[in-house]
Design a protein around this nucleic acid. Structure first.
Length: 433
RNA sequence: UCCCCGGUAGCUCAAUGGUAGAGCGUUCGGCUGUUAACCGAAAUGUUGGAAGUUCGAAUCUUCCCCGGGGAGCCA
C-alpha cells in the first residue's frame, strides 16, 4: 500500500493508503472512534467503528496522545472532517504506546511560556510550531535564491574569532586550544568585507552570538544573520538590495506557505502588500515624525523600541531610515560627504511593531580615516591590522547590511516572541533543552 | 546591571488572614459522526525556599532562588 503524506492526502481520494505518524488526539464516541493522526506534514482525522474493524478498534481504543502508529485505510472526502478529508481506518500498527503513567506533556490547550520552553523538544510537534518552522525554511530558501540571483556568492565567515572587535562585553569567550582565548562571532561583517574585495559581491549566512543580557521578545543569544557585502557599492545600492531581499522572502512565503500562515491565523493581506519599493526616510525626517506624535526625541538620540514602533506605524510596509548621526553609530561607517556629522547607515524597521530587522551601512574605505576612528573609539589597532590591510591594497567604496532572520520570520509569522521561530532558542538564562 | 510582574495538583488557573478548589490530563464507566467531543465517578498538593508577624499565613513582612516582560544594547 502506498505511504502518503497527509499534506498530499487530497490527491488520494477513494484510495487505500498508509500513513506513518503519531496519534495527535483521540475522540471516543461509544463504538465509534475518531483518532486524529499527524505525520509532520499535517493532521488528518480517522474514523474507526467497532462493528467494521474490531481489531483496529481494539488497538486504537484508549490509545494515548503521541503514540507512534502506522495506519492503513481509505481516504475519502468528508465535510465534517477538519481539512475536508478523513481516513476510514482499517489497519493500525502501534509502534510505541505512550505510557498512561507519563502522558505527553503538551496538551491541546494553553500552556505557560516556562513550561513550553522547558519542553521545547516536544512543543515543536504541535501544528503551530511545525507551521512556523516550515515558514522559516521557506524564508531562508527565498533569501538564498534572491541573493544568488543578484550575483552574490555565499561565503562563510568564521564562528571562532580572535580578539574582541567592538568590546568584550557582548562576546562569548571560549577556551581555544592550549589556553588560548577565542570568541564566538557577533557578526561576519569584517570578514565579509575581506571576501567582497576578493569576490565582489558576497553574503554570509550563519549563526551569530551576543552575550548581552537582553531580556526582550526581540532578542536571542544565538540567532541567524544574513550579511551581504559588496565592493563598489554605496548606501543606496544596499537599500535597494535590502528591500528586494525582504520582498522576495515575504512574497515567497505568501505564495508557497499560505496553509501555514492560515494555521498561524496570520493576516495574509498585510503580507501581500509587502512589495518593493519601501519608503525611505532620513533620520531627520524620522525625528520629525516622532515630534508629530509628541515624542521628545532630538537630533543625536538613538531611535529605541518605542520610537521604532511610532515611525513604522506611519507606513504599511517596512521603512528604511537612513543617515543617522555618526556619533551613535559604529566606528567603521562612512560619513556623508555633504554632512560629515551623519553616517551613511540605514536600518529597516518592520511594520506592526516588530522593529529593526536590518541594519547596514557604507563602510569607511579611506585608510587614514579608519585609523582615526579606531583611535577615537579606543580600539586596539594591532587587532585590526588585517582589516586595515583591506584599505592598503586596492581599497574601494563598499557597503553591506545584516538581516536578522528570526526577527524577520517572527514578523512574517506574526508571533509574539522571536523564540518561537527558531527550533531551540538560546536566551538569557535558558539553554535547555 | 536597573525597573515591573509572577511562582498553588502533571498542565491552565481560582481561593479578599479562618476546612486548599475547578477545568484539562490520568484511571474506571457510558455514548455510532465527533470537532481542544460530551456525560458520570475516582485518584492526585512540601502553595518556589528560609525566617518572621499572628490564636491562625497560599494570603502580611524580610531575605534568597527560579522564570517572564521591559530599559540599555542590538539583528
Amino acid at each position: 500500500m502506498t505511504t502518503i503524506s497527509i499534506e498530499q492526502a487530497g490527491k488520494y481520494d477513494g484510495q487505500e493508503v498508509t500513513i506513518k505518524g503519531w496519534l495527535y488526539n483521540l475522540r471516543e464516541s461509544g463504538k465509534l472512534l475518531f483518532p486524529i493522526f499527524r505525520d509532520g506534514t499535517g493532521i488528518m482525522q480517522g474514523v474507526c467503528a467497532l462493528k467494521e474493524n474490531p481489531e483496529a478498534f481494539a488497538a486504537l481504543k484508549g490509545l494515548t496522545q503521541e503514540s507512534s502508529v502506522i495506519v492503513g485505510g481509505k481516504i475519502r472526502a468528508e465535510q465534517r472532517a477538519p481539512g475536508g478529508f478523513e481516513m476510514g481506518v482499517s489497519t493500525i500498527e502501534v509502534l510505541q504506546k505512550v505510557s498512561e503513567a507519563t502522558p505527553f506533556p503538551i496538551q491541546l490547550k494553553e500552556h505557560g511560556v516556562d513550561f513550553l520552553l522547558d519542553h521545547r523538544h516536544l512543543w515543536i510537534r504541535t501544528p503551530r510550531s511545525a507551521a512556523i518552522l516550515r515558514i522559516r525554511a521557506e524564508a531562508i530558501r527565498a533569501a538564498r535564491n534572491y541573493m544568488d540571483e543578484q550575483g552574490y556568492t555565499l561565503t562563510d565567515a568564521p564562528i571562532f574569532t580572535p580578539a574582541a572587535c567592538e568590546g568584550t562585553s557582548t562576546l562569548f569567550e571560549v577556551n581555544y586550544i592550549d589556553d588560548q582565548k577565542a570568541y564566538l562571532t557577533q557578526s561576519g561583517q569584517l570578514y565579509g568585507e575581506a571576501l567582497a574585495m576578493a569576490l565582489g559581491k558576497i553574503y554570509t549566512f550563519g549563526p551569530t552570538f551576543r552575550a548581552e543580557k537582553s531580556k526582550t521578545r526581540r532578542h536571542l543569544t544565538e540567532f541567524w544573520m544574513l550579511e551581504p557585502e559588496a565592493a563598489y557599492a554605496e548606501l543606496d545600492d544596499m537599500m535597494a538590495l535590502a528591500e528586494g531581499l525582504v520582498s522576495a522572502m515575504v512574497q515567497s512565503v505568501v505564495k508557497n506557505k499560505s496553509r501555514e500562515l492560515e494555521t498561524l491565523k496570520r493576516n495574509i493581506q498585510k503580507l501581500e502588500n509587502i512589495k518593493a519599493p519601501f519608503p525611505r526616510i532620513s533620520y531627520d525626517e524620522a525625528i520629525a515624525i516622532l515630534h508629530k506624535h509628541g515624542n521628545p526625541a532630538k537630533f543625536g538620540d538613538d531611535i529605541g523600541g518605542d520610537e521604532e514602533t511610532i515611525v513604522s506605524s506611519e507606513f504599511d510596509r517596512p521603512v528604511m531610515v537612513h543617515r543617522y548621526p555618526a556619533a551613535i553609530k559604529a566606528f567603521y561607517m562612512q560619513p556623508d560627504a555633504q554632512r560629515p556629522d551623519l553616517a551613511l547607515a540605514f536600518d529597516m524597521l518592520a511594520p506592526e511593531g516588530y522593529g529593526e530587522i536590518i541594519g547596514g551601512s557604507q563602510r569607511i574605505h579611506d585608510y587614514d580615516l579608519l585609523v582615526k576612528r579606531l583611535r577615537e573609539n579606543n580600539l586596539p589597532e594591532e587587532s585590526f591590522q588585517w582589516y586595515l590591510d583591506l584599505r592598503r591594497y586596492g581599497s574601494v567604496p563598499h557597503a553591506g547590511f545584516g538581516l536578522g532572520l528570526e526577527r524577520t520570520v517572527a514578523w512574517i509569522c506574526g508571533t509574539e516572541h522571536i523564540r518561537e521561530v527558531i527550533p531551540f532558542p538560546r536566551m538569557l538564562y535558558r539553554v535547555y533543552p
